[in-house]
Write a protein that binds this DNA or RNA. Structure first.
Lengths: 195, 195
DNA sequence: GCCATGATAGGAACACGTTCCACTTCGAGA
DNA sequence: TCTCGAAGTGGAACGTGTTCCTATCATGGC
């Protein structure tokens, strides 16, 4: 107990297990959405015992929100490399949102699984949810002020836009609005808030 | 089949059963939140067989979203009677939101149950969700333009505000923001959109 | 090399949403 | 009043998320 041999409590083997689990989650979600992500199936496909899966992710919701977090981290890293095109704040923010939206709308099942998990999550997944929210705000504020640090006001605006984006995504996933309506709604919201 | 004796397919007894079921749902939700609303318990408390409960509401989600709809209808009716106070659009909209928010924040368990059900709902509950969304938009547009009919632009703005409100409510329910932060975030969003 | 300890495997068991079935009750039309 | 179909009852059964238990395995310290 007193001797900590390693700062990082996870060994390479464990990191690789975690990756396998998240990969299996994404694959199953892409294939059949939220319902297809069954804990027994994830465990089997990741070649891991059910108990081990639960040791890594304490619930299905944690698992799916963590998967969403990994996807967002990838998107964030990809967008951090080259600057967002566009002349105005609204243009750049819309570009980021369109990129995120398109990436998701190409895979409706995956989107449905990740969105619903995010929406359904309760306090126990607070940390994971907060991580996803911060990534979203980070991507949006970077589009608003490339290269500069964002003010509190900027972050509040980004959060509003993120809220609307999530709601719009949910409406799309639930078949209440088409892809066109969704992006129109988003652009209108961005135009309203960023002016 | 050819003879329809009654426009309304539900008898008074059935309406009363439906009311009992929704009452039991609200009571259980107030008491212990989403998890406490168990279908067997609802059926028992409403003095109805489990199969009958499922005949009235095809899933727990439908049940809870319908309960939310009934609450919103009540709020809508209550607010339709006397005009919303406030000099500007933003003032009146904030008033409506505060009223809705306070009504919900007084009962955190109920809010958690209804919000999470609304968020988790899938396409099969599309109709119920849409009803709730329309009620929210109706309450907001009435605050924006008392006595007048709302334009498409008005409705789009109201929808944006409704989106942010739901997201803020979710953040509050999940313990990611305090009641004060929630209302501050809401007021800021309204100020951004309505100017 | 050997041991202690934590991680993993394998699988049974439990809870709750959901489905199904056999039977009963109710109410409208002949 | 009788009959018939729809609605309701009571309860068994099933699926999937979650928990738990025991045996096995791997690893770091002696």
């Amino acid at each position: 107990m007193a001797h900590v041999a390693n700062d990082d409590p996870t060994s390479p083997v464990q990191r690789e297990r975690r990756t396998r689990i998240l990969d299996a989650t994404i694959a199953l979600a892409s294939q059949g959405g939220f319902d297809a992500v069954q804990m027994r199936t994830v465990a089997e496909q990741a070649d891991v015992a059910l108990g081990t899966l639960y040791r890594y992710f304490p619930s299905k919701i944690h698992l799916l929100v963590s998967a969403l977090g990994r996807e967002f981290e990838r998107a964030d890293a990809a967008m951090a490399d080259n600057p967002v095109p566009g002349d105005t704040q609204a243009d750049r923010v819309n570009h980021v949102l369109n990129r995120l939206t398109r990436g998701l709308q190409d895979d409706q099942h995956l989107t449905e699984a990740l969105t619903r998990a995010f929406m359904f999550a309760d306090r126990s997944a607070r940390q994971e949810i907060q991580g996803v929210g911060q990534l979203l705000v980070r991507m949006l504020t970077r589009a608003m002020r490339p290269g500069a640090t964002a003010s509190d006001e900027d972050r509040a605006i980004a959060r509003v836009i993120g809220d609307v984006w999530l709601a719009a995504l949910m409406a799309w996933v639930n078949g209440r609005s088409s892809a066109e309506e969704t992006s129109a709604h988003m652009e209108r919201a961005v135009r309203l808030v960023l002016r």
